[in-house]
């Protein structure tokens, strides 16, 4: 019997090694796998490359990883927010490297990794500072930039519910990077609020099929909405 469900976030993250590239879902506060990130801090892996849209807020999530000194490099599109002071201090002190990537290119580079694409040309960024040093080519009269896949050793994603085969569904805009990151890592770990029986997820509506998911772990639900009836649905 295939059962991808692990009993705890600690068990799910036990084998993450130093120097790993970790893809972490979330956009702003939506879809951030906070319990998995906390467990990664406790687990102790160092010299990590983190791929996330942002560079953490206040002292939660990715910012907490930064604070714990576990991050060597961040690959992201938008590290500057009102409360991204931890990243800013480390960046200015030269203690963390930044690779700034346009958001769509970030997502597409991970899609490319998941889809077995060697590299791709995109007009995004052509002629800008973010294309400096990259190979370019004119295609149909338009400048394009060559972009390479981003592969993760591990992906940490937050979904709403999952089953023992690793099928996942998400909730509203918390879906964001989850499905793409799940496809782009050697080991994808999904935290869910609810584990359901096989067959309980409508096959027409499964967003991430289990082939992209290595481990599933249940975490206690946090209140994400002021409408309890809706959250319980």
């Amino acid at each position: 019997m295939i059962d991808k469900i692990l009993p705890s976030v600690e068990a799910a993250l036990a084998d993450v090694g130093d120097g790993s590239t970790v893809l972490i879902g979330g956009f702003g506060g939506a879809g951030v796998p906070e319990e998995l990130i906390d467990a990664l801090i406790a687990q102790g892996a160092r010299e990590l490359t983190i791929v996330n849209n942002n560079a953490g807020n206040a002292e939660f999530g990715v910012a907490a990883l930064l604070k714990a000194g576990r991050v060597r490099k961040i690959v992201c599109s938008y590290p500057r927010t009102a409360d991204s002071y931890l990243f800013e201090a480390l960046y200015r002190a030269g203690k963390v490297e930044l690779e700034l990537v346009p958001q769509g290119t970030l997502s597409e580079r991970m899609r490319a990794a998941g889809a077995g694409i060697g590299a791709f040309y995109t007009p995004t960024g052509y002629g800008t500072d973010l294309a400096k040093g990259k190979e370019t080519r004119m295609i149909d009269g338009r400048g394009h930039v060559l972009e390479h896949p981003i592969r993760g050793d591990v992906a940490l994603v937050k979904a709403e519910r999952g089953d023992r085969w690793g099928n996942l569904v998400y909730r509203k805009s918390a879906r964001n990077f989850g499905p793409t990151m799940a496809s782009a890592a050697k080991c994808t770990i999904a935290q869910v609020y609810e584990i359901v029986e096989l067959g309980a997820l409508d096959p027409e509506c499964i967003v991430t099929p289990g082939i992209f998911v290595t481990r599933v772990v249940k975490v206690p639900r946090k209140k994400t909405t002021a409408v309890p009836a809706e959250a319980a649905a």
């Binding site: 700034l100 958001q103 769509g104 995004t124 960024g125 800008t128």
Partner: peptide, 15 residues
């Protein structure tokens, strides 16, 4: 000197 941040601006601009 500002921390660079681009988000989806370049994607929208060309797309």
């Amino acid at each position: 000197d500002a921390i660079p941040a681009v988000g989806g601006a370049m994607d929208l601009a060309v797309g």
